[in-house]
């Protein structure tokens, strides 16, 4: 009994020092050779998978409850609104079908690969990563649904991110706003290419390595370019929201506001599409002015559609 009470005092410096030094050694080892710890990380992820599945039930049942509790009047109004929207979209699709056919013909003439829109899978966001510093979402689909790491994730407005870890029944999405995320993009108006980095702020991405003299304006639309062979080409990413050109640096600082709802969304779409690096669906809308601008860039194969537009 006495021993227990005084056991509290028996704290010697040596084991604590040893543990602290071991911890520092671990940090250095993880910094230099992160792959050494992959088995341990993988094990923890696997253990978290059933937890994520369990956590998705309250969210799903909450959805079910709100659906059940809606009044008939509200459902009628919603139905009418959706029908009107469907009609509008169908009219737009007719135009797209014609453009798509024309595009296919032109691509046939140029011997460039066709754009293949892959299968899609709708999934529900069931949570976020425990670390508030990272921009990572957890969804309720995993390798059982055929997902694999690297697939692109979208919502109805634009690109959200890519699948990072795929577990059996859940996956983790690295958002484009995460500090470690980068997307290869193209400015729609000029066709200029760039790399869009996350900043850790979900309302602001940063377009890297754009020279001070580049033709870029507020409101320019930014699309994926497909050059990184990760993200398929031609999906909306964001809008240029701020440009600052200072004489002190060679590159302009360009902020891009993401189009997708990175924080508030509820459903996401996962695209099953092999990222063909050569596909260029948006180059047809590029004006002739753009050709001279981007002609200085090295990849000549990618410039072909520009000439077709001329």
């Amino acid at each position: 009994m006495e021993q227990n009470i005084f056991a509290r005092d028996a704290q010697s410096l040596r084991p604590a020092l040893l543990a602290a030094i071991t911890a520092i050694a671990l940090m250095l080892a993880d910094w230099q050779h992160a792959d050494w710890f992959n088995p341990a990380r993988h094990l923890v992820r696997r253990a978290m998978d059933p937890l994520y599945v369990f956590a998705s039930y309250p969210i799903l049942s909450g959805d079910w409850l709100t659906e059940q509790a809606q009044s008939e009047d509200r459902l009628r109004r919603e139905n009418a609104a959706l029908k009107a929207e469907l009609l509008q979209n169908n009219v737009r699709l007719q135009k797209f079908a014609e453009l798509s056919a024309e595009n296919t013909r032109l691509r046939g003439l140029l011997n460039t690969p066709l754009i293949i829109d892959g299968r899609m899978l709708i999934s529900e966001i069931i949570g976020t990563d425990p670390d508030p510093l990272r921009h990572i979402l957890v969804i309720n689909r995993g390798s059982d649904d055929g997902l694999s790491a690297g697939q692109m994730v979208l919502d109805d407005q634009g690109v959200i991110g890519q699948l990072m870890d795929v577990m059996t029944h859940s996956s983790r999405i690295l958002l484009i706003s995460d500090k470690e995320s980068a997307v290869s993009v193209r400015i729609q108006r000029t066709g200029m290419r760039g790399i869009l980095n996350g900043t850790g702020d979900s309302g602001r991405l940063s377009l890297q390595y754009v020279p001070n003299t580049a033709d870029i304006q507020l409101g320019d639309q930014v699309f994926t370019s497909g050059l990184g062979e990760r993200f398929p080409a031609g999906y909306a990413v964001g809008i240029v929201s701020a440009i600052s050109r200072t004489g002190s640096t060679e590159f302009a600082q360009i902020a891009v506001k993401p189009k997708a709802l990175l924080e508030g969304g509820h459903h996401v779409v996962i695209l099953f599409s092999e990222p063909l690096a050569k596909e260029q669906p948006h180059t047809d809308s590029v004006t002739t002015k753009a050709t001279g601008k981007s002609g200085s860039k090295p990849n000549q194969a990618l410039e072909k559609p520009h000439y077709a537009a001329q």
Binding site: R8, Q11, A23, I24, A29, A40, D129, P130
Partner: peptide, 27 residues
Amino acid sequence: LLLDNIIGLHAFLFVVLLYAVRFLTRN
């Protein structure tokens, strides 16, 4: 591991903090 941090960061913080706590509350 749970927070996907660099391994050893929380271990270091916890060890240092808990040593300080036990040292300061020894009496």
